[in-house]
Design a protein around this nucleic acid. Sequence first.
DNA 1: TCCATTCCTCAAAGCGCTTTGACTGCCCTC
DNA 2: GAGGGCAGTCAAAGCGCTTTGAGGAATGGA
Lengths: 343, 343
Amino acid sequence: MNLKQLSQMLGLSQTTVSRALNGYPEVNRETRERVLKAVRETGYRPNKAAQRLATGKAGSIGLVMPTSPGNSSDVHFSEFLTGLGEEALRHDFHFVLTPADPNDEVGALKRLAASGNVDALFVNYMRGHDPRLEMLKTLSMPFLVHGRSIGSEPDYPFLDIDNEAAFYEATKLLLQLGHKRFALLNGPIYLDFAIRRKNGVEAALAERGLALDEACVSHTAMTDEQGLLVMERILQMEKKQRPTAVLCSSTVLALGAVRAINQAKLKLGEDISMIAHDDVLTLLKPENFTVPLTTTRSSLRSAGVRIAERLIGEIKRTETFPAQELWKAELIVRASTGVAPAD
Amino acid sequence: MNLKQLSQMLGLSQTTVSRALNGYPEVNRETRERVLKAVRETGYRPNKAAQRLATGKAGSIGLVMPTSPGNSSDVHFSEFLTGLGEEALRHDFHFVLTPADPNDEVGALKRLAASGNVDALFVNYMRGHDPRLEMLKTLSMPFLVHGRSIGSEPDYPFLDIDNEAAFYEATKLLLQLGHKRFALLNGPIYLDFAIRRKNGVEAALAERGLALDEACVSHTAMTDEQGLLVMERILQMEKKQRPTAVLCSSTVLALGAVRAINQAKLKLGEDISMIAHDDVLTLLKPENFTVPLTTTRSSLRSAGVRIAERLIGEIKRTETFPAQELWKAELIVRASTGVAPAD
DNA sequence: TCCATTCCTCAAAGCGCTTTGACTGCCCTC
DNA sequence: GAGGGCAGTCAAAGCGCTTTGAGGAATGGA
């Protein structure tokens, strides 16, 4: 069933039917109702490809889906996607997901934009001086960045959390509790958030004249497996030098790290304190850990909702948003942080 | 840059350029190379919407993305999506994701099909007597089901794992180890796989004249939280009646259940044995549990790859596949299963 | 020399929609 | 009764591509 058939059925022109459907004012109320009724009865749906061709708008947002084999950011990605989806549903938008070779994300993005399949682009997992930014700026298509790219001129629209402040505050709390030796289980060093979180930790330490021991810093994929391995390695250090405070970039890393701590028969919150960043994953709640985890919290899902909201608003040109948003993470104290043990 | 401009630039007709691009034989080799070179230089990409309109093919697969608030199947969903993406990438396909109100999945599917945005549909999280099946059959569009729908005529193309056999085998192993009282931490009862798994357990028990105590069966969302809660409840039973063997429908449930067991100071593999179904989630490996978990294993990601392969093959009409595939899960024995404790 | 054949190229139609600009009644005003 | 304004409708063009059916040039055989 297409417009032509529908309009013939109704004895109207395609123009009138189209206008009736799209809410133009110059259509008689009676006529409009007649059209709407017919649509309901026939189940007619406008062909999106044709609509897209005619209007240049497709009602869709383009995502490049990271697909490195073994890429395990997927819990975080999917949590975020859920948020995006929630909002998109309200506006009858959908997503076009292009899986991309991780070495060719710029290319994938370009192809997606040129395909005419999407109205706006979205990127995340930002790196330092991310090459995608330059490319996005040359495109005349709305885009939004989740995160930021350190080393690039901050002249692009983004939504990010204040990673530096979050880890600064977390470190400061641990310092106040008397901790002097710190470990940081971080995400891959090329990722912007990892760089900023490390900066935050170092800034807080520097205020006390302390420095982060590089031997106690890891940059790995954010899996529980890596968390376990790294923590095991760190726990093998001599007790006098071993960190008493651990910062984790994700509750997933923390999951593994806690297991290592348990296996070493150490007590979380007594022998070792831990603060993890909590993306509010449905799967993994810090309050459900055997020893509930102190966290810096910021919901990835809410970020998804907000990003969809902004992107869709921009496509519809209904609203103007502040181009750049920086969310504060909350520091939530639970049992995994305690006074530093006496040496 | 569009076809018209490109062909003018080259002094050729649109037809010739289009043919050169799409590999038609009647184009002079020289001409074709000239065209290809120009494409490379200008970065020309055919407009997908136009292509779609002209050919009726879009190079995309439609997914309905489950988005119930608090839906926590997302780890599993995302693992699967990764597999789909991996294969789609090889064929330059993409996905159109429509977020759907969980009460209107049929509607969302219908809209997606009618939108002309997709060449094939895919559905999962099948329920008993799933209403989506009837709808899909009326559509003249290839589709593939992940899972099956008990209670519906099995005359549709699907890929499923043999859930019943997997849980039958797992139960049998536990029976051989002397266990007599079983618990089952299952997914939502309306889901097909949950029904079949329960059937599998009951079939094995029935062979020994045993029955599953309904008080020891749970049907919950597959989160670690639920796993914890249910297991805590079960462990409060009087010791004489308390199950010594636990089957979990997911390693995620097992994660919570194990925590409950630890908190109760019970030893996994000694006081209580456990077998979980392992979807091979990147996040959660059963071998990394403090006591490595015995599992029935079947990779969700591989299923994704295979499904994309079949769907794309069908769209391109290059290959015909067996319409229905049933994969066997492997039973992998680790330390979480041991001889039943003496009463 | 002419025609048949092969190889390459082209103009034009069509996919299903939106949108422009024109048209038809009709009512109102002067 | 002529002219203007308005509400409602329409035919046709255009979005960027593929594909059909036809045409032109070169080659070879009769």
